[in-house]
Simulated scan of single mutants.
Amino acid sequence: MVSDPTLAALADLIAVVARLRDPEGGCPWDLEQTHASLVPYVLEEAHEVADAIRRGDDRHLAEELGDLLLQVVLHAQIAAEERRFDLKGIAEGLGAKLVRRHPHVFAGAEATDSAAVKASWEAIKAQEAAERQGSAAADPLPSPLSDRLAGKVRGQPALAGAMTISRKAAAAGFEWEAMAGVWEKVHEELEELKEAVASGDRVHAQEELGDVLFTLVNVARWCGLDPEEGLAGTNRRFLERFSRVEAALGGDLQGRSIRELEQHWQQAKAAIRAEAQAEQPGADPTA
């Protein structure tokens, strides 16, 4: 019998998921799921966790962390049914990895600041990768940067992966001499996108769109900005303004002229800006 309340709750969750996957009386939807079919849900739940963190909403964050935990338990259950691995093995592997990658905590090594911790972490990861590939003894040279980056960004969203590639490539010396070169590249890629769209070649246009986005990520890196946070903020602002436009028009946007919609859009922007200024300490509510 589990005495720790947290462990007891986790045991209950594992039992619930196992019941959902029980061929005799389980949930038809859960029984149909595979690792591959659940990929969109893993990504969706991770993004919803991030959104709750950005909002500072503890209730929402606790709920979304639960949904993300469900994905971990469900994947472990599917693998256990196929006798490949289970949640116990996942937890043991994670615990061992954390101990191995924190020698300054568990093995008496020195790490005076977070930068030293990060450097040690990356060195240990690289050593582990070499050992897994069986190349540590045969080839003492490190893997090419492109190979390491390919593995690093494989599981990242495209925007985050682009920033990782940009940072690592720049650190290796693949970098513009000045910000002017970055802006020149932005304009170059934008013109190529326009030409590709005009040509009607959708595949080419898709490639050029990616080039524009990747170059804008480089702009973000040069300016010390976070493209993910920037786009998330734009999404929130758009939805807030759009909701006010909908409210002003009674929820009916059909048949409205672009001029009318733009007028309501600007009014929504102004109202939101005024409300934000009024909420600032010391603000003059009559200003």
Rank of each mutant, 00 (worst) to 15 (best):
G282Q: 08
E44M: 04
Q263F: 10
T34G: 05
T286V: 00
G251R: 13
K168W: 08
L38F: 00
Q127S: 13
E246Y: 13
W183A: 04
L31S: 06
L249I: 05
T6Q: 10
L94P: 00
A129H: 14
V203T: 14
D226C: 02
M179R: 15
L94M: 07
K88T: 09
A76S: 15
R19P: 00
D252G: 05
E177K: 15
A172Q: 10
A76R: 10
L225I: 02
D147L: 03
E188N: 05
E64C: 01
L70Q: 06
H75I: 09
V219Y: 02
E229C: 00
Q277N: 11
D252Q: 14
A129M: 07
A130Q: 08
R148N: 12
A274L: 11
W29M: 04
Q71N: 07
T112S: 10
V2D: 14
A205L: 11
A138R: 14
K125V: 08
R236H: 11
F106P: 03
L31H: 09
H204R: 15
R148M: 09
A270Q: 10
Q77H: 12
L249G: 12
R84C: 01
L74C: 05
V182Y: 11
G181F: 14
P28V: 04
A91G: 01
E192I: 03
L209P: 03
V245T: 12
E184C: 02
V42P: 01
E63T: 09
A76G: 12
L87C: 03
H60L: 10
K185F: 00
V212R: 13
A232D: 15
E260H: 01
H102W: 03
E229W: 08
T234G: 03
A18F: 01
E189G: 01
S3P: 00
G25F: 01
L239S: 08
G56Q: 08
T112P: 00
E128P: 02
L159S: 02
